[in-house]
Each structure stands twice: as structure tokens, then as C-alpha cells.
Amino acid sequence: MNKQLKTMIAFIVISLCISSSLAGQTAVYASPPSIGTNAYASAIIDVQSGRILYSSNGDVETRIASLTKIMTAIVAIEHGNLADKVTVSRRAAGKEGSSIYLKLGEEMTLSNLLYGLMLRSGNDAATAIAEHIGGSEAGFVFLMNQKAEELGLTHTQFRNPHGLDADGHYSSANDLAKLTAYALKNKIFAEIVKTKYKQAPNPYEKWNYTWRNKNKMLNMYEGADGVKTGYTKKAFRCLVSSATRNGQQLAVVTLNDGDDWRDHQKLLDWGFKHYPLSHLAEAKQLVPGSNLVYGTGFSYPLEESELDKVKATVALLDQRSVHYSLGERGRMNFYLDGEPIGTVPLYEKGSARIKMLDSRAAEESFTQFQKLNQQQEGWLNKLKSWFK
């Protein structure tokens, strides 16, 4: 029996061991309790994994009001230069609905326009952004729909960048959840939507623009960090919120919900309680019965009864492959009910790649130490100034 075949057999055993350790002793688990809302459609998604944890009328196509601006913002961030000066056109300055009160010919950076877009839901900001990035509103809408197709949002179609009611302009709770999960992985987007208060230069007054975020969840829910409100007379109240607890970020979507603030708190609580992150692999952890270690950690949101449904198998790499030459030896593939949920690269214990991970971890620890020192020095200087 050759060495590679022996290794393969060992990995099959390892796979079974991993499945057994996840399952524990045989037990009967209760399914999570059902939950209802006042929304016409709703969804909960785990941001990192993209797993939809709850959905009601999730694929029904309906009006979404200013939740449209989630797509407007991410397209602008990906296609634009935040430092660009955007000149406000007559069309943008005169846009009806919610506004940050831009004036014809006014110049504002794309960065500040994005804050006005997401904190105050400015339709004038949306139009100015669209014309700047897309050359015209129609050109920008093309980019929006192109992005929707790229993300696999099959129940979404845009007709404008602001969300005012228009025939053929719609999305669904599930699609908005997927879009939000994608957008929140962008650091610029995530920073904007969690901002409670923003000032921007106002060229026509002695005082700055002052924008307070319309998203009350930022003050109502522990760990809240986004995302967007919406309302029109036909779409009614729409809301996307997000929150992070214990290293897990969830996003909730409700469409046409007269009690959205309360429903979002309830849905977030339900998601965190019943679908916490299960840590299936830790970086540098030794794979039982081998000299291989995980190259990265891997966590996945699992309901208690799903723990014994997780399986893990190893795929060995061809020694002639590029990845093998770069140090990777195999991949641990994780499945839930037979469906793939994640993959972790495997490396030899003590290899150059693992030493690199150790070096990077040490560097990050030193950087954190430096930041802490700087903070302490700042506090000391403040104390000294108070006692002068």
C-alpha cells in the first residue's frame, strides 16, 4: 500500500472523528420556536457566512423605498473616488422627497454625499452620486442592475438610485439580506452606516451641515451597527438593521412593517439566541491523526439540532499543483446536510506558511500594544492638563 493511499485512509478516519466530535452523544433537540412579525416580508442573515437564518415571504418581489440606497452606496464606493468633488445638477437639487438640501452648482465630496445618502436618506444626494458615477442616472442604474446580477439577486430590479416608487423597481427580503451582507464586508460602507452623527462643510452658510442618522436601532439595540431606513406611501415602512455580538454579525430586513423597531429587536435576539456561531476549526489546530494543521479558523451559524448534521472531509492536493508548491497540502471541506458550507486550507505543522501566521499574529499583537500605549499616554496628558 503506497504512502498517499495510507494517508487518504487516515483522512477518512479523521473525517469520521470530526463528525462524531461535533455530534457528541445522541440527543433529541427541539427546533427553534417560531417567530412572527408585523412585516409583509422579512429575513435574517448571518453576514459572514451569508446563511439566511429566517425568511417569511422572502422571495416575494415588492417595493423597497430607500433601502434602494444600500445598492447606490456600494456601487458608488466600488466605482468612485471618495475624494472626488461632485457638482450638484439642477435635476439633483430639485429631487423630491427626503433631502439634505443641496443647492444647484454646489460642490461636495463623494464621501460626504455618501454620508448624506445613508444617514439622512437624501434623494438629492442619490441623484448627484448617480450622475457623477454613471454619467447619468440611467447609466448608474445600469451599474446597479449589473451588480444585482453579479450577486445573484434574482428578485431585484432597479429603475432609479433613490427608491422613489416606480413601476419595475423592486426587490425582496432575501435579496436585500444578501445585498446587505455583501455591502457590510466593505469597510467604507460599514463605517458610514454605523455613524450616528456627521458634519460636512456647507459653502453657503457659516455653520456646517449636521446629519443625525435616522436609524434609531443604533441607539435602541446593543451592538447595532447599521444599516438603512425607508418609506414611501406605496412601500410603507421598510428597514434593514444589523448588529454584532460575540463576534457574530446579523442583518435583518423587514418590508412594509408598521412596528419595525420592535420587530427588529425581536428578530435579532432570536437569531443570536438560536443560531450562534459554532467554531468548527481553529487556525493552527492539529487535525487528529495527522501532521497537518488548519490554515485558518472556520465558524458557521448552527442551530442546536444541526450540530450532528455537520460532516467534514479532506481533499488532498495534487503534488504538481500550484497550491501544493506554495505549501498547501489539502483542504478540509465542511458540509451541512450534504450541502457545502465552507473550506479550510491545510498545511504541514511547522511549515513556512504556519510560521508566517505566527509572525503575523505577533505583529498584530505588537500593533495593538502600541495603540494601547498611545491611548494611555493620551489619557495621562489629559489628566495632567486638568491638574495644571
Score class of each variant (00 low, 15 high):
Arg91Ala: 13
Pro161Gln: 12
Lys95Arg: 15
Ile35His: 01
Leu357Trp: 09
Lys349Cys: 00
Ala243Ile: 10
Gly297Arg: 09
Pro201Gly: 13
Tyr29Ser: 13
Lys228Trp: 08
Pro161Arg: 03
Tyr115Ile: 10
Lys388Val: 15
Thr232Gly: 07
Glu61Gly: 11
Ala312Tyr: 10
Ile52His: 06
Val240Glu: 02
Ile52Tyr: 02
Ile45Ser: 01
Met71Ser: 04
Thr367Gly: 13
Thr313Val: 14
Ser321Gln: 13
Gly24Ala: 14
Phe298Ala: 02
Gly330Asp: 10
Leu346His: 08
Glu303Trp: 09
Ser321Tyr: 11
Asp308Phe: 07
Gln368Glu: 13
Asp84Val: 00
Val293Glu: 00
Glu107Met: 04
Lys85His: 12
Arg262Leu: 05
Val314Glu: 10
Asp225Phe: 04
Pro276Cys: 02
Val310Ile: 06
Trp386Leu: 14
Arg331Ala: 09
Gly163Leu: 10
Gly258Phe: 07
Leu277Tyr: 09
Asp167Trp: 13
Ser278Trp: 08
His274Val: 10
Ile9Tyr: 05
Lys228Ala: 14
Lys85Thr: 12
Tyr115Cys: 07
Ile14Ala: 12
Asn145Arg: 06
His274Leu: 07
Ser42Lys: 01
Tyr182Glu: 04
Arg360Gly: 04
Thr156Ile: 11
Ser56Met: 15
Lys206Cys: 04
Val344Lys: 01
Arg360Cys: 05
Ala173Gly: 03
Thr72Pro: 01
His162Met: 01
Tyr335His: 08
Thr68Asn: 12
Val253Lys: 08
Ser111Asn: 14
Asp59Met: 09
Asp175Met: 00
Lys273Leu: 15
Ser299Gln: 02
Leu153Phe: 04
Phe387His: 11
Met356Cys: 07
Ser55Met: 05
Gly139Asp: 12
Leu151Tyr: 04
His323Glu: 14
Gln370Ile: 15
Asp175Ile: 00
Val293Tyr: 03
Gln4Ala: 11
Phe369Asp: 11
Tyr324Cys: 07
Ser242Tyr: 07
Val287Leu: 12
Val47Trp: 00
Gly330Ile: 06
Tyr324Phe: 15
Ala173Arg: 03
Thr229Lys: 13
Leu277Arg: 00
Asn38Gly: 09
Thr254Ser: 07
Ser299Tyr: 01
Lys95Ser: 13
Gln374Ala: 13
Ala76His: 05
Tyr29Lys: 04
Gly24Leu: 12
Gln248Ala: 05
Asn219Ile: 07
Ile74Arg: 04
Phe298Lys: 00
His323Trp: 08
Val86Tyr: 02
Trp211Glu: 12
Gly36Phe: 01
Pro33His: 08
Ala10Lys: 14
Leu16Thr: 11
Val28Trp: 03
His79Val: 00
Leu316Lys: 07
Ser278Asn: 14
Tyr347Asp: 05
Leu317Pro: 01
